[in-house]
Design a protein around this nucleic acid. Structure first.
Length: 643
RNA sequence: GCCCAUGUGGCUCAGGGGUAGAGCACACCCUUGGUAAGGGUGAGGUCGUGAGUUCGAGUCUCACCAUGGGCUCCA
C-alpha cells in the first residue's frame, strides 16, 4: 500500500499509510489544533466546508478550519441547529423535527408541534441550549442503512425524517445515511458538525415564523424558529448591534420621523407622500429626466386604464391576471396598467416606422397598479401602486449591443451621482421554457455579454434564469450595510414585438421585427426612496433634501435680517426655512438636527452686523462665520451639480 | 393568500373587567437665551372595526381590517 500525501496551505506535505480523516491530519500537526478543529476545506477555498470526520484522499489540499476562520461558522451553526432541535425536544418531547439548515446570518429549524411557540418560549429554548452547550456532549457520526434509519425514525414518530430518507433512496439511490449523535439525541444529517457541543460559544434564538413543509402551501404548516450562533460572544454582540443599527435606518421609521410618507388602511400598499417626501420624489424624477435628455430618450404619457383586450394581446391576462386590478365601465372590461410596455407597443404601432427611427427610446413615469398579495407588502419597498423610471428601447438586433452599453453607462452615471458605488450585475440566460429562435437568443445573450465586457463590468451568469421572452441583466445594488437590493434591470423581449406585430421598414424596404428592451435604473421611485433612505440613513445629499437650509436666529433682534436671508435663499431656488420661534438656540439646533437638515445658518447680533452667517453642518461640524453672499454662491453650486 | 404577533391622542408607549394616563409634538403665557430638550398653563382619545359574554368591556371571546416578522435558503 502506497503512502497517502496530504498538502497543507503552507505547501508542506503530511504522509500517511492510510486515508486519514481531517482530524487525524490535525492531530499529526498538533494536539492544540486538533482540539480546535471545526471542519475543513478540501481542494480550494471555494469548496464546500467538509466534516472533520471525513477521510481524505491522496493529493488532497487541506485547509483546516478553526474558530478563526469565517467558514467555520457554517459548522458551528449547523451543529447549533441540532442543539436547538435537541433543546426543543427535551422541553417538549411531543415535538417532531423536520429540517434545520444554515442560512445567511444564522440558521433555523422547522418543527411540527401541537404547542404553539410563544415569544416566551424563545428564551426558554435559548436557556436550554446554553445548558446543552455546558453539557458539552461529544458529537459522533454513524452510518446507518436506509431501511434501518427509516424504521427507527418511524418508530419514533418522526415521519418527516422518514420521508426525507425515502426520497433520498428514490431520487438519489442512496443506501446509507449518516446520523449524528450527541448524548442521547441523534438526527439524520449530512453534516458537517463540531467535535463537541461546547465548541459552540454563543447562541441566540431570534424569532418565530410559520413555514410549510418543503415550502409548499398545501403541505403541513410548521413552526420555524430562527436563531444564530457565533464563534464567540463578541461576534454575536456585534451582530446584534448591527441589527439594531439596521433598525434605526429602517425607511419606515425614517419616513415617519422625517415626515416623508404615510400609509392609511383605506389604501393598503398605497403610499401617501407628504410635501417633504414629494420633494425627494420629484427631485429624483427630474434628475432622471435630465439623464433621459442626455442619453436620447423621449418621454411619453400613456393611459392608465386599458381595455382588457390589450392584456390578452400582450399575454399579461393569461400570465399576470392575479396581480391586476379590473373594473367594468359600460359593460366593457378594463384594467389598470400593471406595466407600461403594452401601451408603448400600441404607441409604437401608431405610425409606420423606418429603420431610421430606431433606436426608439420611450420613457414613461406612468403610475402602475399591481395587486401584491396582502402578506408581502413592506413599507415603500413593496407597494401596490408605484411608478418606475421605466423606458423601452425598440431597436434593430444589430443595435442591441450598443444600446446595452449605453444603458449600463447611464446606470453607472446615475448610481455614481447618488453615491451608490457598490453593485453587482447578473446575467440570466435562456430558460428551458422559452420562445423565439435559437439564433436570436444567441445574438441577445452575446450582445449582453459583449456589452459588459466592453465596459469592463464583471457579471455573474445565472444559466436558465432568463424570462421566457428573453435574457436579462439584473443589477443588485449593495447598500452601506452590505445588503443587496435589486433595483436596475435590462430585459430583452422577443415576445411583445411579435404579439403586437411591430415592424419597421429596413434599408432594403422590407418589414422587419424590432427587438424590445425593458429597462429601469432606479426600479420604482417608491422602492428606490425606501432603499436609498436605508443606504444613507436619512442623510440625503443636499439636492435631495426636502429642507436644505434652516435659519436659526438667536433673538428677535435678528428678525429683519433673517427675513432677508430667507427671501434671498428662496429667490435662488433653495428650499429654506426659518425657525423664528422664541426658543433657545440649542433647542432649535436639536430640531434641525433631528430633521437632518444639511445646513443650519446661525444668526446672532455678531453675524447680523457683518452680513455673515455661521454655518453648522448636520455632521455637527461648525464653519467659521462666512459672508452670506459666499454661502449663497456655494449652495447654488451644490444644487447645480447635485451634491 | 397562509402562520404568529401587534393595534390606546399627531408620535413613542403605560394601563389587562368598574367608565382613560405619561412624555414628546401642538396652542397660549413667561423667558431674548450662542451650538442636541428653559418654565408654566391648556386643548386633544367613539382605546382599529363589528358582533358576542357580562349588571358593566381598551381590558375576555369570535369575525373582519390594517401593520409587523416570516412563508426563497432543504438530511
Amino acid at each position: 500500500m502506497g503512502s497517502v500525501r496530504i498538502f497543507l496551505p503552507d505547501n508542506s506535505v503530511k504522509e500517511f499509510d492510510h486515508e486519514p480523516t481531517v482530524l487525524e491530519v490535525a492531530e499529526s500537526i498538533g494536539s492544540r489544533l486538533a482540539k480546535d478543529t471545526l471542519g475543513a476545506l478540501v481542494n480550494g477555498p471555494g469548496s464546500e466546508v467538509v466534516d472533520l470526520r471525513i477521510r481524505l484522499k491522496d493529493g488532497d489540499r487541506l485547509k483546516i478550519l478553526t474558530a478563526k476562520d469565517e467558514e467555520s461558522l457554517e459548522v458551528i451553526r449547523h451543529s447549533a441547529a441540532h442543539v436547538m432541535a435537541q433543546a426543543v425536544q427535551e422541553i417538549w418531547p411531543e415535538v417532531k423535527v423536520t429540517i434545520g439548515p444554515v442560512i445567511d446570518n444564522g440558521f433555523y429549524y422547522d418543527f411540527d408541534s401541537p404547542h404553539h411557540f410563544t415569544p416566551e418560549d424563545l428564551s426558554k429554548i435559548e436557556k436550554k441550549m446554553e445548558e446543552l452547550l455546558r453539557r458539552n456532549d461529544e458529537v459522533t457520526r454513524e452510518l446507518w442503512s436506509a431501511e434501518q434509519a427509516i424504521e427507527t425514525f418511524e418508530s419514533m414518530g418522526e415521519a418527516f425524517k422518514a420521508e426525507i430518507i425515502r426520497d433520498l433512496v428514490r431520487d438519489e439511490g442512496v443506501s446509507e445515511v449518516s446520523i449524528y449523535r450527541q448524548g442521547q439525541w441523534f438526527d439524520l444529517c449530512r453534516g458537517p458538525h463540531v467535535q463537541r457541543i461546547g465548541q459552540i460559544k454563543a447562541v441566540k434564538v431570534m424569532s418565530l415564523a410559520g413555514a410549510y413543509w418543503r415550502g409548499d402551501e398545501t403541505k403541513a404548516q410548521l413552526q420555524r424558529v430562527y436563531a444564530t450562533a457565533f464563534n464567540d460572544k463578541k461576534d454575536l454582540d456585534e451582530y446584534l448591534h448591527n441589527l439594531e443599527e439596521a433598525k434605526k435606518r429602517d425607511h419606515r421609521k425614517l419616513g415617519k420621523d422625517l415626515n416623508l410618507f404615510v400609509f392609511h388602511p383605506l389604501s393598503p400598499g398605497g403610499p401617501f407622500f407628504t410635501p417633504k417626501g414629494t420633494v425627494i420624489y420629484n427631485q429624483l424624477q427630474s434628475f432622471i429626466r435630465e439623464k433621459y435628455r442626455e442619453y436620447g430618450y423621449e418621454e411619453v404619457i400613456t393611459p392608465q386604464l386599458f381595455d382588457v383586450d390589450l392584456y390578452h394581446q400582450s399575454g399579461h391576462y393569461e400570465n399576470y391576471r392575479e396581480n391586476m386590478y379590473f373594473t367594468q365601465i359600460d359593460e366593457r372590461d378594463f384594467s389598470f396598467k400593471p406595466m407600461n410596455c403594452p401601451g408603448h407597443c400600441v404607441l409604437y404601432g401608431a405610425d409606420k416606422k423606418s429603420y431610421r427611427d430606431l433606436p426608439w427610446r420611450v420613457a414613461d413615469f406612468g403610475r402602475l397598479h399591481r395587486h401584491e398579495r396582502s402578506g408581502v407588502m413592506h413599507g415603500l419597498t413593496r407597494v401596490r401602486t408605484f411608478c418606475q423610471d421605466d423606458a423601452h428601447i425598440f431597436c434593430r438586433s444589430d443595435q442591441l449591443q450598443g444600446e446595452i452599453e449605453q444603458f449600463m453607462t447611464m446606470l453607472r452615471d446615475v448610481y455614481q451621482k447618488l453615491n451608490m458605488l457598490d453593485y453587482k450585475v447578473y446575467l440570466s440566460t435562456r430558460p428551458e421554457q422559452r420562445m423565439g429562435e435559437e439564433r436570436v437568443w444567441d445574438q441577445a445573450e452575446q450582445a449582453l455579454e459583449q456589452a459588459l465586457k466592453a465596459l469592463g463590468i464583471d457579471c455573474q451568469i445565472n444559466p436558465g434564469d432568463g424570462a421566457f421572452y428573453g435574457p436579462k441583466l439584473d443589477i443588485m445594488f449593495v447598500d452601506a450595510l452590505k445588503r443587496p437590493w435589486q433595483l436596475g434591470t435590462l430585459q430583452c423581449d422577443f415576445n411583445m414585438p411579435e404579439a403586437f406585430k411591430l415592424a419597421y421598414v429596413s434599408e432594403e424596404n422590407k418589414e422587419e421585427r424590432p427587438v424590445m428592451l425593458h429597462r429601469a435604473i432606479l426600479g420604482s421611485l417608491e422602492r428606490f426612496i425606501g432603499v436609498y433612505l436605508e443606504h444613507t440613513a436619512g442623510h440625503l445629499p443636499i439636492w435631495l433634501s426636502p429642507v436644505q437650509v434652516k435659519i436659526l436666529n438667536l433673538t428677535d433682534r435678528q428678525n429683519e435680517y433673517c427675513a432677508e436671508l430667507l427671501q434671498s435663499l428662496l429667490d435662488a431656488g433653495v428650499r429654506a426655512e426659518w425657525d423664528d420661534r422664541r426658543e433657545k438656540l440649542g433647542f432649535k439646533i436639536r430640531q434641525a438636527q433631528l430633521e437632518k437638515v444639511p445646513y443650519m445658518l446661525i444668526v446672532g447680533d455678531k453675524e447680523m452686523e457683518e452680513k455673515r452667517v455661521t454655518v453648522r453642518l448636520r455632521s455637527a461640524e461648525n464653519k467659521e462665520a462666512v459672508e452670506f453672499a459666499d454661502f449663497l454662491e456655494d449652495i447654488k453650486q451644490d444644487l447645480l451639480l447635485r451634491r
